[in-house]
Write a protein that binds this DNA or RNA. Structure first.
Length: 575
RNA sequence: CGGAGCGUAGCGCAGCCUGGUAGCGCACCUGGUUUGGGACCAGGGUGUCGGAGGUUCGAAUCCUCUCGCUCCGACCA
């Protein structure tokens, strides 16, 4: 491709509304343009990366035995009413009517449509296992789209659905997908973790999220430094240590703590560490219960763990007036001593003695509080948020490391939720109808490309890994008005095309500075510079965008060397 | 949806408080010089000042309503 015949509108300045690096760089490098909130056009240069991502997905899905199909964006309400999600999905589901006033929605995911297809076409266990996938544009009317392609309303997603006769089959399908996902993200050259995830509202049996590690990630994850265990902090289990409470050595002592409400305030005021405090959170549940939750002062409550423990729909921090009613004091002074409500403590609290707690009265705390002697705890459980440094629950001496992650993929064992709701059954070898056991598997295509940029950039621009880069090599003719330069560049360009290398020839009549700045910005992995400085000796300069290595090559050998380097870069990542 | 903020040229912004000719930088077009890290000279045009209503002799500026967008919280690929 010749630059002068291409559309690659680079921006010198960062658009004001782009917050994260990938969004900024994709805008500046002319990969995407915004059409409306969370809705983008893929410009030619960006689309090339998207297509490469799709192709990698396609190859690995096919290799794992999945079959590609394509379902419609417009879904009839009928199917969604059948699964019950027409009512449940909420405003994220973009609904509309056709000219006959029939209800439709834009598909945010396709369990309904695929289940409908399968129930109508698959009748026998002999047709199983089956795994169908598509790469398609989804629409979710997100409350708050942001970060460019990272969280759009309209976005390209690969979604796959597996159908099996029984749980064992479904588990096998799941692990195939798990492995396919590992291959996909590995081939993209991404640094990622597959983490155990909460199954949330869908309620399936298990689930993994694939997280690309990046500082801008919206999810917090932990991974063991010794074994394979990794999990979203929402889910991360903590080692339950059966431990004896140490003996009390201090007297319970009431102290004035005027105006000291937060853990930090109280700790500083009393000249103790936050870990010597026990904080008391007053919690309300969906079952209308009010209870107290105890955590070591420096720890955070994991609301999902608590929700699961209590087997309720939701929990939340109590409103100020409920706190006042329960403890007799305004928020900030709650403590377990003398409380009338149920008390649940994080297991870690069991190991504490002589700690500080709130006094259930304005400006009052207790020093030297102790379990049993001063108050009773109904139950100890793992209810706190995992953090870096915590012990791994799966191996003897591993410790957690903490990361920020971007969720690029999710594999989910669905079970029979949809097949039962929509009556999708097959006959087994006994001639008996059995509901299909399903799994679903998603990858955010644009989000993965964005995540790759988050992970591969520097102050000058992006440096996408070879497998995702829009072009493999940029040939930059420093001065197109110089005949020798032009001829050498054209020759090299043709040779590269003949060798099947994806090459962009910068044949613009621009000053070298502009060409080099643009080259760094758009970050094509290899750059060949043809300029008078080296051409005098019959040489061109080959520069690697990501590492910065540079070598001088003769004009004659350059194309072959580039071909080889491209192959190496693609192979290295496949391993 | 709750809170905060922004809409002025393709992009980045000033002007608004205190009403009176719509501006700056970049980009763009023409000509010339220049050609290894975002050049220089000369010339050029670019706008429903987000929209609607109101106040006023006069509104980008003041008032009301509206639409759009961005950021912070609960959802998710």
């Amino acid at each position: 491709m010749r630059y002068t015949q291409y559309l690659l509108p680079t921006l010198k300045e960062t658009p004001a509304d782009a917050e994260v690096i990938s969004h900024q760089l994709m805008m500046r490098a002319g990969m995407i343009r915004k059409v409306a909130a969370g809705i983008y056009s893929y410009m030619p240069f960006g689309l090339r990366s998207i297509r490469k991502m799709e192709q990698i997905i396609r190859e690995e899905m096919d290799r794992a035995g999945a079959i590609e199909c394509l379902m419609p964006m417009a879904n009839p309400a009928e199917l969604w009413q059948e699964s019950g999600r027409w009512e449940k999905y909420g405003k994220e589901l973009l609904r509309f009517k056709d000219r006959k006033e029939t209800d439709f929605c834009m598909g945010p995911t396709h369990e309904e449509v695929i289940t409908d297809i399968v129930r109508n076409t698959v009748k026998s266990y002999k047709q199983l296992p089956l795994n169908l996938y598509q790469i398609q544009t989804k629409f979710r009317d997100e409350i708050r789209p942001r970060f460019g392609l990272m969280r759009g309303r309209e976005f390209i997603m690969k979604d796959a659905y597996s159908f099996d006769l029984d749980d064992e089959g479904a588990d096998a399908a799941y692990s195939k997908m798990y492995q396919a996902y590992r291959n996909i993200f590995q081939r993209c050259g991404l640094n990622f973790r597959a983490v155990e995830a909460d199954t949330g509202a869908i309620g399936g049996s298990f689930s993994h999220e694939f997280m690309v590690l990046a500082a801008s990630g919206e999810d917090a994850i932990v991974s063991c430094d010794t074994c394979e265990y990794a999990a979203n902090v929402e889910k991360a289990e903590l080692l339950y240590r059966e431990s004896k409470t140490p003996p009390a050595t201090a007297e319970l002592q009431k102290v004035d703590t005027p105006g000291q409400k937060t853990i930090e305030d109280v700790a500083a005021f009393l000249k103790v560490e936050p870990r010597q405090l026990v904080k008391t959170l007053i919690i309300q549940t969906s079952e209308d219960e009010v209870l107290a939750v105890l955590l070591r002062g420096d720890r955070e409550l994991n609301e999902i763990k608590l929700t699961n423990l209590l087997n309720v729909d939701w929990v939340l921090m109590a409103e100020d007036d409920v706190v006042k009613q329960t403890t007799g004091a305004p928020t900030g002074f709650a403590g377990p001593i003398g409380l009338k409500v149920r008390v649940i403590a994080d297991s870690e609290v069991q190991e504490m003695a002589d700690f500080v707690v709130g006094g259930n009265a304005v400006d009052v705390h207790y020093l030297g509080a102790n379990l049993d002697r001063d108050f009773a705890v109904g139950r100890f459980a793992d209810i706190r948020q995992a953090v870096g440094g915590d012990s791994c629950p799966r191996c003897a001496d591993g410790k957690f490391e903490s990361w920020r992650g971007i969720e690029v993929g999710h594999v989910f064992k669905l079970g029979t939720k949809y097949s039962e709701a929509m009556n999708a059954t097959v006959l087994d070898d006994q001639g008996k109808a059995r509901p299909l056991v399903m799994g679903c598997y998603g990858i955010g295509v644009g989000r993965t490309v964005a995540a790759a940029i988050e992970q591969n950039h520097d102050e000058y621009g992006m440096a996408l890994p070879m497998p995702l880069a829009p072009f493999q090599v940029l040939v930059s003719m420093v001065n197109p008005k110089d005949d020798a330069i032009r001829e050498a560049s054209e020759q090299l360009y043709r040779q590269l095309l003949d060798l099947g290398v994806e090459v962009l020839l910068d044949d613009r009549d621009e000053r070298p500075g502009i060409k080099f700045k643009d080259a760094d910005l758009i970050g094509i992995p290899l750059r060949v510079t043809v300029g008078s400085r080296n051409l005098k000796e019959g040489r061109v300069e080959l520069k690697v965008r990501a590492g910065g290595e540079m070598l001088l090559l003769s004009v004659a050998e350059a194309a072959q060397v580039v071909r080889q380097m491209v192959d190496d870069a693609l192979l290295f990542i496949v391993k």
